[in-house]
Nucleic acid binder design. Structure first.
Lengths: 203, 203, 203, 203
DNA sequence: TTTTAAACGAGACGGTACGTCGCGTCTTTAT
DNA sequence: ATAAAGACGCGACGTACCGTCTCGTTTAAAA
């Protein structure tokens, strides 16, 4: 249902589809995930409830589509990939700074948090999320690291997935659990710690 | 709630309190967070709904207390602190392995995931969670790292918070979003990547 | 509700309507007014609570409709009007005897008492009750008295409303407050006292 | 418990008793019967709930005591009995006028209506009500009629209970069901109709 | 073109759970 | 010893949404 579906089963109203996705992001941005009922989305979209149930299996599904729809043509970062100025550390610093900018912007924060809540509660939505949002982003990040390897800025032996995780998961975690402020200071520090390596005495 | 307040407003039933917390963990373990209604918790605890509403402000609050109550005397790891055999890498490997063991055990996983969902949706619960669960754990971890610094296994200049984050956030993130399997292989790799540092060619 | 309004707002389920009214009379007949919760009516009717709240404003409203519905085509007495054998005294005696029969029959007594309680507590329900139950009955009674006037059995000057009140209110009052047994003896006596007039010595 | 109780069982706080009865009348006068909870009465009286439950069996019982307490030393009319100027018709007219004055005065109306609702729903309270309120009043009325009989204004054969009923029940009924305005006109008319007798043509 | 089948808006329906109020009982604290 | 205070298990309140199910009414394809 969510997947591609180019040969549309029957005549589907694109106006309704758009209205629903827009209403969903807006509503979630205003009142949060759990207070955004399907009824409320339908009402705000000027749509019958059935039209939602016809095309999506859950509120989470709507939210996933809505989030993707809102960031069309370019997932958070640039669609063409991460910046590559030749300086890996500087580039990653910039990317992480851009990430915290987004996560600190309520217009992005609220829907993304809502989507994350939905994902946590629904295993199959999690798979969908992984495939359509997480994986593409991870590929972009790994691509940038691979370039750095080619440029000799990173050992070819390093596990790229591990590097991506150690760079981005701390930010995601701090954002999700609000365990601390999301600042450039924090991310810069993180980049340094991870990419510079942990110095041992006498090394 | 747990903290101080010895002159309780009036006599509170400890039987009811315990029954509620127990029922909450059990129920959440059986049917998940969103299907664990307060009504169901009350019924299973043999308690009136009002008794829950009287002492907790939300399902999330109950869950937090319930989780802490279930792990009394010893938060996930040892209460006395993280193991210290003198070998930092080996010890952290063990700790992370223990962590994935827990996260793979439904008896811990379900309630913790439920609690996390609640925390994501409720800012003030997040603060409570940080203070009572996250921070104490972080202190234990930093304590172990500080010992390593004293033993000369870790540079005294390193930012301990950043190290803790890079070690544990990736695991938490992978668990929460189910973006991959939680294996010893993954965590061992992580420890190595983080604690060994990222080697650069020619270094 | 019964009256007019043929272009119903949207499609209303007549099955639900009937089930609710039936359940209401039954329940009230079994456990009395105050113990007949809306919840219980809904359950017995196999209906959601909201379906009751959607169409009625209070338990009393339901009861009024239910009472009218239960006595369709013939309010307590004959639908065509009160009997007219040509003998006013005999006819009124019969009517009052029929009334006490009903009031002594739990199947009628319980719902009617419930309805009356509701009416006492709710001014606007009282108006509805007056209009739809009390007034029609009063008209029938006055019609019979008017016939008696035409037949020369009753002075044309007499206030028919006052006569109706003096004949029926004592019975209603005795029934409501249970201030005495409702017997033929009592009502016969009443008819005689009222219709024969109060003889004074030497008249 | 309800009955007179002059030999008080134990040391009972008269302050509490008075506070409760006062609070009950006031509350019922302000918000009506069904919204006057026992909790609210207790709170307003500055009394523990248990103190109410200890001495009364139901809200209705409290209300009955409260009503009697409020009208101490003189039930509605004069304690010494109904007025007797020697003119029965004039006196009954005056008594009925006084009655409608009371029933039109919210300070009396509200508590009395509340009490009546309670009586309708509770058979044993009805008995209590009859014995302590209704009967004494009826005796006074019959006493006045008996005096009229002695004075030759009323046939000695007439059934005094029936006369009392036909005079007062219509007013009570009209008040309870709000089936019409309670005016002097109405009661004067009633007195005339009942006491003058129903004239027939040619008598 | 006309037909016709679907998707659509609207919203009623049987339900579940919400968070609150009040019931009548029971226990604790402070006179 | 009695009263205030109020927690307790319980049941009902009236509301919000759930997901399903008709209803007419568009509306755009196939006939």
């Amino acid at each position: 249902m969510l997947c591609s579906m180019p040969p549309r089963s029957t005549r589907r109203s694109d106006a309704a589809r758009t209205a629903i996705l827009t209403a969903a992001v807006e509503l979630v941005g205003e009142v949060g995930y759990s207070k955004s009922s399907i009824e409320a989305i339908a009402t705000r979209a000027g749509v019958g409830k059935q039209t939602i149930y016809r095309w999506w299996s859950s509120k989470g599904s709507v939210l996933l589509d809505a989030y993707l729809n809102a960031n069309v043509g370019g997932e958070p970062e640039d669609p063409q990939g991460l910046p590559n100025t030749g300086d890996l550390v500087a580039d990653m610093r910039a990317v992480l700074r851009a990430t915290v900018d987004e996560l600190n912007d309520p217009r992005f924060e609220r829907p993304l948090r809502a989507l994350t809540v939905a994902v946590l509660e629904d295993e199959s939505l999690a798979a969908e999320y992984s495939r359509r949002l997480d994986e593409p982003m991870r590929q972009m990040k790994k691509e940038r690291l691979r370039a750095a390897q080619r440029q000799g800025q990173l050992s070819p032996d390093v596990d790229l997935d591990a590097v991506v995780d150690t760079l981005f998961a701390p930010v995601a975690q701090r954002w999700l659990l609000r365990s601390g402020p999301l600042t450039y200071e924090y991310t810069d520090h993180l980049v340094e710690t991870v990419l510079t390596g942990l110095p041992r005495p006498g090394s």
